[in-house]
Amino acid sequence: MAKNEHYIPFDAESVLGFAAPYLQGVPVSAVEIGDGNLNVVFRVHGESGSVIVKQALPYLRVAGESWPLTRHRARIEAEAIEIHNKLAPGRPAQLLHFDDALSALVLEDLTEHLTWREALIAGQEIADVAESVGRYSAAIILGTSDVILPSRQRRTLKRSFVYSELCLVTEDLVFTAPYIDAESNRYVEGIADRVTELRRDRPLRAAAAELRFSFKTRDEALIHGDLHTGSVMIKPGDTRIIDFEFAFFGPSGFDPGVLLANLALSRLAHRSSGNAAFCRFLDTCALAYWNALVDEMRRRWDPSEPWYHRFLAHLLTDAARFAGMEMIRRVVGLAHAKDIDILPIDARVEASTHAIDCGRALILGSPVHHFDDLWHRAIGEETR
């Protein structure tokens, strides 16, 4: 297939020709899948097997054409997959092809996987997922930081991952919009008073502004940038990471904070539904993620290094505060946590209220010193 010189959005017909070289046999059918906020995604079937085609649109899909974006994010995703796969082999979904002119990626089809979020919503206890993601996080945080990566290589890498348009989206939706009367905000009516309080909470708004500044200026590692439970694809024995278009050099604590926040949101949803046993499972997931991250860092970086324990302490403190921002925005902002949104109205109001309270406690509380401090603050329970 000759490379297209001009961008054309795919539909179920035109995507067949694009995907053909990466299929076994001739392409048979294509169907649009997913409920992503950014891109159009097709599953394209051949005579045997299938692939995923992901194309960047020239606007933020969840907001529509009123929020234009460049398609540069497709190149960012392709390059981030390559780099993260070198550091954590086999963890990112395999990239088969990238076409810059069409802003399109061809990816392996993880047909037997489901998102971690879907599994958690369904109450499925799949082993070793949290540990796998924890080891991945450690590999990326250390492998792209000044701790391990030589300075010359790091400077070269940073030139490809500057503060992007999608960073501006995060800046707006996570750190700004929930604390002003933004048109993009969405929330269940029962928490309207609590949302109004956010706009009047001067200490919280000041902390949000401080964290926004950290997000914009602390280029510590080539983070995933959107590592929530919907960006993790799982099946027994295999965990994969997807959706790398938000990757950039940012604070090391951001990815762990976002991941832990989404586990906490899942727990709040299950608690509001009366699923105490699954809440206990989520407690083990959160601890397993953090322990695996720490163990992998210890494996990759000599713990006798005097700075090692300070580094981990700062990482934990940052993760707690970024987790608080994520918890609030997932019930107030544009892109919600499905775990809570699908609840009956009373349970949804309850879980959303807890998410705001827990997020505030993480952001404004005293610095956490142990993982239990972070987690029990995130789920609204006193540390035992």
Rank of each mutant, 00 (worst) to 15 (best):
L293K: 06
D109I: 02
N185D: 13
F161M: 12
K3G: 07
R300G: 14
S29E: 06
I83K: 15
P236R: 12
Q153I: 10
F311A: 01
E108M: 02
H113K: 11
H270K: 08
T284P: 07
I83H: 08
E171M: 02
R135Q: 13
I223P: 11
A88I: 08
R71N: 14
W116G: 00
T111N: 14
A378C: 05
A347Y: 00
F18M: 12
L168S: 13
I379N: 07
D341F: 05
L57A: 03
F175I: 05
A139G: 10
W301G: 02
D193S: 14
D283Q: 10
A104E: 05
D295F: 02
D238I: 05
I363N: 01
S137H: 09
N262C: 04
E381R: 15
A347G: 00
P150F: 06
L293Q: 12
A355R: 07
V28P: 02
A221L: 07
I141F: 06
L149R: 14
L60R: 10
V133G: 10
D295G: 03
R152C: 04
V147F: 07
L265D: 07
R348D: 02
L87P: 07
A247N: 05
S184L: 09
F246K: 14
F213P: 00
I191V: 12
A182K: 02
L166H: 10
W301S: 01
A323F: 01
S164R: 03
A221N: 09
A276H: 07
S66D: 06
E13Y: 11
D109S: 10
A101N: 04
R135C: 10
I234P: 14
A80K: 05
L95D: 08
H224I: 03
E305C: 04
L157Y: 12
F10E: 09
R202Q: 15
P68S: 01
K86W: 00
D339F: 03
Q124A: 12
S273C: 08
H354E: 02
G365L: 10
R384D: 00
V53F: 13
I81P: 12
E382G: 04
V195S: 04
L120E: 01
R135N: 05
D226T: 09
H369L: 12
I126C: 13
V174A: 07
G230A: 14
D295V: 01
G123F: 04
L16F: 02
P27R: 11
P251C: 09
A93L: 12
S304E: 11
R329F: 04
